[in-house]
Amino acid sequence: MTPIAEVEGRRIALSNLDKVLYPATGTTKGELLHYCATSAGALLAHLAGRPVSFLRFPDGPAGQRFFTKNPPPGAPSWVRTAAVPRSAGQLAKQVLVEDLATLMWAANLVVEFHTPQWQVDNPARADRIVFDLDPGEPATVVECCAAALWLRERLAADGLSAYAKTSGSKGLHLLVPLEPTPSPEVSAYAKSLAVEAEAELPRLVVHRMTRALRPGKVFVDHSQNSAAKTTAAPYTVRARTEPTVSAPVSWEEVAGCTAPEDLVFRVGDIAGRLERYGDLLGPLINLNRAGRLP
């Protein structure tokens, strides 16, 4: 019998709670849902106001995975949606995850949460810049940290503040709070910094996606600033071998990273980090911290 949970007055069927999703750690679906419930404050703060896309992996990371921007079939009538622009000027519905009930309903589907750099009431006007630092083997997150420190200083020279989180995979994400700005302008600025980083650090950084250029270097992916692109949300669990989280990190942790495992955080680590540091990405949702493009 499928358990029914009542969350904020909503009845949600929570299925297969004992199902092992991550065999490497024995992590069950119930433990994944527990993580989402106990981290809801931080998760919801970064999902609020943004149309959410889902990377679903119902049988764990080794099973089938599929990405969807459309509301999943069978979504309850109380799950809020919003009309957002798609290609050719068309509108389409996407889910808004802004309360605990919706979060737990979505988590029961076993998903990664992905969001664009803009909010639903201001489409295609980015309120943050994102750089996805992706290491090409044998480079690791250690090299990503070196690139991140350079980008942080370069952004500061333009009056912009950068904040970091792990990707939850191999790399690092840099996020910069911004006064709402047309996405094409943000994309152009981000690309210019990626090109500049490669010119300044040619042995470390590459700004082009060409696979042949990437071994041993950090690809500074600026493309996710496009209005049509999305990035893994802060605190989302990733569909990786272990239940790793896209976790905010301090600049002290970035500067002190000497081995890849230094910046690997799993679902069991986040409650302690939130208690110790609070939300290290809090400035992203504090409009007083937003900067302007030069």
Rank of each mutant, 00 (worst) to 15 (best):
R266L: 13
A212N: 06
Y22P: 00
V249L: 13
A194G: 13
L201M: 14
S167C: 11
K93L: 13
Q90T: 10
L149S: 00
T236S: 15
R80H: 15
V111E: 02
M104D: 03
Q94E: 09
P243D: 02
V142I: 14
R266C: 03
Q117F: 03
S192K: 10
T115A: 09
R125K: 11
R292F: 07
A24V: 02
E200T: 09
A197V: 06
N16R: 14
S187G: 13
N16P: 00
A101K: 03
P202E: 10
A126D: 14
G74L: 06
L155C: 04
P73D: 14
P283G: 05
P177M: 11
D59I: 00
Y22N: 00
G49Y: 05
P177L: 12
W78E: 06
V142R: 12
V97E: 07
N288R: 14
R86Y: 04
G26I: 01
C145F: 13
G159E: 09
G272S: 08
V264T: 13
T27A: 11
H173Q: 14
M104Y: 01
K69C: 01
A247R: 12
T258Q: 08
E196C: 15
T81M: 14
P138Q: 12
A147P: 11
A75T: 15
A82R: 11
A83P: 11
T102P: 07
G136P: 10
V176S: 03
K165E: 05
A162T: 02
L43A: 00
W251T: 02
A148I: 09
A62W: 08
L44F: 06
E8A: 12
V52T: 12
I285W: 08
I129M: 06
A92T: 07
G41R: 10
N70V: 06
L14F: 14
R266Y: 05
E196A: 15
E185W: 02
A247C: 15
I129P: 03
Q224N: 12
F219M: 05
M209E: 07
T231I: 15
K19W: 01
A83E: 15
P135K: 05
L103M: 04
T81R: 15
L44N: 03
A232W: 02
D99M: 06
G30D: 11
L109P: 01
K69I: 01
V254S: 09
D59W: 00
V264K: 12
G63S: 06
E198Q: 15
A37W: 12
A190V: 14
T140E: 11
A188I: 10
P85D: 12
H173Y: 14
E253P: 01
R11P: 02
P116L: 07
L17Y: 01
A75L: 08
N122I: 00
N286T: 06
V7P: 03
E143F: 10
D132I: 05
A139T: 13
L32P: 01
A255L: 08
A233H: 02
Q224W: 06
V141H: 06
A188K: 15
K229V: 00
N225P: 11
L33Q: 09
V141R: 12
A255Q: 08
A271R: 11
L175W: 07
L55Q: 01
L193I: 09
V84A: 05
A212V: 13
E253T: 01
A232M: 08
T166D: 10
T244N: 00
L155T: 02
